[in-house]
Amino acid sequence: MDSQHVPGVDDALRTAAADAAGPPLGRPMTDLRAGRGTGLRRPRLAFAAGDVVVVSGLPGSGKSTLIRRVVPARDGRGRPVRTIDAQDVREAWERWLPSWLPYAVYRPGVRAAHYARLGRALRSGDSVVVHDCGANGWVRRWAARWCTRRRGRRLHLLLMDVPPRQALQGQVLRGRTVPPRAFARHRRAIGRLVAGAEAGRLPGGCASVVLLDRAAAAALRAIAFDRPSAGRPGGTE
């Protein structure tokens, strides 16, 4: 798979490390969707150690799969990269709760535990990757506030632009579907984020946005946290 050429994705990913690191190293918005890039052999996105990356997209778009596949255990400083995914919390609770108990009963507890984990990760100063459905803009704003409190730390958005039909198929494959009304709310939220990125408007507090579709996500091999911090010079991949 590493040797497979993905037209329209590979070359764009070669410059995406600089683009994703924010305006000092490149453009604040990078579009890696099929047909919009220029091509690369070893796709890799690089951010500064200590930065926060939020991965957003429709439920079933492949966010958890992408995070588990490309996020390293440690950053360029040798410190852990923390991945924050509510599904990890849910699965942990499911292991010790009775199987007959509906998720709706303990969902508030899962969400509280998830946000507590996120708070601890942000306070730690470690590099952080956050799984986010995109419907709750306050999560990004919260992370952005923590970044501004720590000089040189930045918030980046990796935005999965996947057609609703594909996302629904992804939900079926993972065996966990989202109610139609909730899915419609996610569609509206992600649609606004994608439209804003295409128009060059970054969500509040974000230093950069990287747009991905399924082809670009499949071509991506790694997300690294090994670039110089904001304000210091850095090169491209």
Rank of each mutant, 00 (worst) to 15 (best):
P7H: 02
P7E: 02
V9G: 12
R14D: 11
T15H: 14
A16M: 09
A21F: 01
G22D: 01
G26K: 00
R27F: 02
P28G: 07
M29S: 02
M29R: 11
M29P: 03
D31N: 07
D31G: 01
R33T: 08
A34G: 08
R36P: 10
G37A: 14
L40K: 11
L40C: 09
L40E: 14
R42M: 00
P43Q: 06
R44P: 00
A46F: 05
F47E: 11
A49H: 11
G50D: 05
G50H: 08
V53S: 05
V53F: 01
V54A: 13
S56T: 11
S56Q: 12
S56R: 13
G57S: 09
G57H: 04
L58A: 07
P59F: 09
G62Y: 11
S64C: 06
S64T: 15
S64Y: 10
S64V: 03
T65E: 13
L66G: 04
I67L: 14
I67Y: 03
R69I: 07
V70E: 08
V71I: 09
V71N: 10
P72S: 03
A73C: 12
R77A: 13
R77H: 08
G78L: 06
P80K: 10
R82G: 00
T83H: 06
I84W: 04
Q87D: 14
Q87C: 00
R90H: 00
E91F: 06
A92Y: 08
A92Q: 12
W93A: 14
W93K: 00
E94N: 12
E94R: 15
R95F: 10
W96I: 15
P98Y: 09
S99N: 00
L101D: 04
L101W: 05
P102E: 11
A104K: 10
V105A: 13
V105D: 11
V105P: 01
V110C: 03
R111A: 14
A112K: 03
H114K: 07
Y115R: 14
A116E: 14
A116N: 07
R117N: 15
R117D: 15
R117V: 06
L118Q: 11
R120V: 13
A121L: 05
A121F: 07
L122R: 06
R123P: 00
S124I: 04
G125N: 01
S127M: 08
V130R: 02
C133G: 15
C133Q: 05
G137Q: 07
W138E: 13
V139K: 05
R140V: 06
R141W: 08
R141Y: 10
R141G: 07
W142T: 04
A143Y: 08
A143M: 11
R145Q: 10
W146I: 00
W146A: 15
W146H: 15
C147V: 05
R149V: 09
R149Q: 13
R150T: 14
R151M: 02
R151D: 10
G152Q: 10
G152Y: 06
G152P: 05
R153W: 03
R153Q: 04
R153K: 01
